[in-house]
Amino acid sequence: MTFKKPRNLLEGYSKLIGSHSEDSSDDLMVTCPKCKKSLASGDLLGSINVCMYCGHHFRMNARQRLNLICDRDTFAEADGTMVSSNLIGFPEYDGKLENARLDSKEPDAVICGACKINGIAAGIFVMEPYFMMGSMGVVVGEKLTRLFERAAAERLPVVGFTVSGGARMQEGILSLMQMAKVSGAVKRHSDAGLFFVCVLTDPTTGGVTASFAMEADVIAAEPFAHIGFAGARVIEQTMRKKLPEGFQRAEFLLEKGFIDDIVERKKQKKYLAQLLKMHVR
């Protein structure tokens, strides 16, 4: 028997923000971390998880994003049954995986497939924040690699949405190797003259930032998304000083020249469609 941590109220809350079951209690109130206003979770779902008062972008689960971006009934999922296993016998990992599947209702931390965006065919991947914070293990690496390989073979562009704490430490060195593996597939896709656009969402960090998130031809980000290589706390400990305001936020990366633009959620579909159209070959 694997020990499962008890569910708590906070998890229920986070799940509701990005819930599949939109029927669950509409009257639950959520406080916006930016403007501190109280929002009904039902209203928030209706406003694509963006605060109607200040525009703060809440997290969003992968299926919700696919609905937002793909043309109706065009998304065809690939490798949707691939599941992670405890490859190096890491303690408590089996239980964590089971919980993550329950929390997210997804088999792993990325959904891949093909779709149309305003009529233009593309490969697409969306990472899932409610599955171990989108961490990249062997399954995530394999699904992404297959996606880029398929897109290269079918001569399709790729649209991606990242959200990730980085490599999944419970799979040890094998998860680190996925960074190289996916990067290889991204490079082959690119060398075939094909287009890759990536939207970085909150948070995109660690091994994902240090691989495919930063390898796209065009890199966009959601407003105020936390994007970086090292964790803010680790940097604070290393430097022994407080970090400047807005450090590692999307606006900071734009200023430093590491992303192409910041694009609000409600404008993303149009933005992506326009870019895809500009890069049709």
């Binding site: 964790g231 680790v234 290393t238």
Partner: peptide, 13 residues
């Protein structure tokens, strides 16, 4: 890789 402010500013990832 170094975890510092400058490293992040100059794109460690």
């Amino acid at each position: 890789a170094y975890c510092g402010i400058g490293a992040e500013e100059r794109g460690q990832g």
